[in-house]
């Protein structure tokens, strides 16, 4: 089995207008047009979507889990970014 495999594409589906595209899985396809068709046939058989994106898996750059602490921990103590950080008396409205 020496033949080249069809490249892998990641599939993102917008389930209805107003929502963002969400990653649902992957398909193999020789080209982007085929990838869209495969994504349609594989991931929207039950009206799961109104729009599809496909992107070659090899074109995705991901953050490294080993760096997860360096990336995401520093946000942890910045609680002042959240509205609940501030105490405002109940009688003050519209804030």
């Amino acid at each position: 089995m020496n033949e080249k495999e069809w490249p892998l594409f990641e599939v993102f589906v917008r389930s209805r207008s107003g929502l963002e595209h969400k990653h649902v899985g992957s398909v193999h396809a020789a080209d982007a047009r085929m990838a869209i068709e495969h994504a349609r046939d594989v991931y929207t058989r039950r009206q799961e979507g109104v729009s599809i994106w496909v992107v070659r898996s090899s074109d995705i750059t991901a953050s490294d889990p080993a760096e997860a602490d360096a990336f995401f921990e520093p946000a942890r103590d910045k609680v002042y970014r959240h509205p609940t950080f501030y105490s405002i008396p109940d009688e003050v409205k519209n804030l």
Binding site: M1, E3, E5, G25, V27, H28, V42, R45
Partner: peptide, 28 residues
């Protein structure tokens, strides 16, 4: 529709296995 679903489920699962560093071709 049912047999088609089975093919689809095979694909979801191959997709999941591919995240572990094996290709669909190798599995096939």
């Amino acid at each position: 529709a049912k047999v088609q679903d089975e093919g689809g489920h095979g694909m979801y699962l191959y997709s999941a296995a591919e995240t572990l560093g094996i290709s669909r071709d190798q599995m096939m």
